[in-house]
Design a protein around this nucleic acid. Structure first.
Length: 420
DNA sequence: TCTGGGGTCCTAGGACCC
DNA sequence: TCTGGGGTCCTAGGACCC
């Protein structure tokens, strides 16, 4: 048996933790630049605010209904996520942290505890230890556990826990779930499924022509179908695998025109990506840069990307910035309103396993040492304490807007709440 | 005025090898 | 009239996830 534990409206729940006055009020959290809603409480959903809805479109509605709206505060969310996950780890030897707010638990060997009551215990303990409300779905495959979790979230009468032990309960559940709500079936594929007259998860499970499913939906679609039938295709992945590519991108707070500003932004994103790269003890050999104007605005549009393959692997921020700038220089066209830039590094392998080059030197010992010192200082004294001059200083034109950000209650000494 | 960020996997097709 | 067989690697594009 697998349990899927999923935090309810995770970012919003984090915001509510230190604000008891918000416990009954609708709460929403916005994407970067206070752009779109990325997390909503049930009260906000009930007001008709959709996932991904641009804030400016529903601002009046929010004000009228006293919605508490926040800028994203990721240091708070990742910190709370760690606490939730370490609580969950106490309930199973096999835990897969699937995302910031979700984890799969292997309950094999714990049958004597009674899966459903064990699920209720997990829910209670997470809520007691962290204050974050969760839903629990339990079933023999991950896909079925997802279904169970979906139903637990949707129906208050379940008390937030749904257990699907056998074919009878599974069939009953599957017939209540629309195809688009199956894990792994997205927008495109659900349209195709509906054309085959497959409307519910139960219809999909029962659809007999496996070959056809394989042809239309590839191997993954077939595996999903098998999982609905109770055959395990997706196992837990217990060790978090290293990233094969690392992307760093932001929409700018204001449009920028000058290549100097773009260079600063790109240098910052390259630095961020390299920090993540070194954190997982890897090196990269490919750098891609992408820039674009604002597609929502009626101005001259432009977007372009290009990549550069290095002769030798590196984890040295200086090199990556240098090459990223060379690529940027090629892409840059004067006269456009740029609104976003991206840096992607790939060709990632383990440090010390990078292919050497006859013609280009790899990272020197001095380079490794320098990066190590920079990372250590930033780790200790906060991100950006030490940075490259290429990244610019203060009042950056492209800096993002985050006017509604809550304090870093649990990750900054100066922002810890005080109790009177 | 104002619209996010970061990933993975699969497949087909092209280019190449003997 | 008639033109082999077997493979690998890479990339772009599409689909999905949170």
């Amino acid at each position: 048996m697998y349990a899927l534990v999923d935090c309810n409206s995770f970012y919003c729940s984090c915001e509510r933790l230190f604000r008891p006055d918000l416990w009954k009020r609708p709460v929403g959290v916005l994407s970067n630049n206070d752009g779109c809603f990325v997390s909503r409480t049930k009260e906000l959903k009930a007001l008709g605010v959709k996932m991904g809805e641009p804030y400016f479109k529903v601002r009046d509605l929010c004000e009228k209904n006293k919605v508490a709206v926040f800028s994203a505060n990721f240091s708070l969310y990742t910190n709370m996520s760690d606490r939730v996950m370490s609580t969950l780890a106490q309930f199973t030897p096999e835990l897969e942290i699937y995302s910031v707010d979700e984890a799969f638990l292997n309950l094999s060997g714990l049958e004597h505890r009674g899966p459903e009551s064990y699920g209720r215990l997990i829910k209670k303990m997470v809520e007691r230890h962290t204050g974050i409300p969760v839903s629990v779905g339990i079933a023999p495959t991950k896909t079925l556990a997802k279904i169970a979790n979906h139903l637990a979230k949707k129906n208050d009468s379940t008390g937030g826990v749904v257990y699907l032990p056998d074919e009878r309960t599974q069939n009953e559940a599957l017939s209540k779930v629309a195809v688009e709500d199956i894990w792994g079936i997205g927008k495109r594929n659900s349209v195709k499924l509906r054309m085959l007259n497959i409307k519910t998860a139960k219809d999909f499970k029962d659809y007999k022509n496996d070959k056809q499913i394989q042809n239309i939906f590839t191997k993954v679609g077939r595996m999903t179908q098998d999982e609905l039938r109770g055959r395990v295709c997706f196992k837990l992945s217990l060790v978090p695998s290293k990233k094969k590519e690392i992307i760093s991108s932001r929409t700018f707070g204001q449009a920028v025109y000058d290549i100097k500003d773009l260079r600063e932004a790109v240098a910052n994103y390259a630095s961020l990506a390299c920090e993540k790269l070194r954190h997982q003890e890897s090196v990269c050999s490919m750098i891609e840069v992408y820039v674009r104007t604002n597609p929502f605005k009626e101005v001259a549009q432009y977007h372009a990307s290009e990549s550069f393959k290095m002769g030798a692997h590196t984890a040295d921020t200086r090199k990556v910035i240098k090459y990223a700038w060379e690529v940027l220089d090629k892409l840059y066209q004067h006269g456009y309103e740029y609104k976003k830039a991206m840096v992607r590094i790939s060709g990632i392998t383990d440090k010390n396993c990078g292919q050497l080059s006859l013609f280009e030197a790899g990272d020197s010992k001095e380079s490794d040492k320098l990066m190590e010192v920079i990372d250590k200082i930033n780790d200790k004294d906060g991100p950006g304490t030490l940075k490259f001059a290429a990244c610019g200083v203060n009042n950056l034109a492209w800096k993002m807007q985050q006017s509604l950000k809550s304090p870093r209650y649990v990750s900054s000494w100066s922002e810890i709440p005080s109790v009177n």
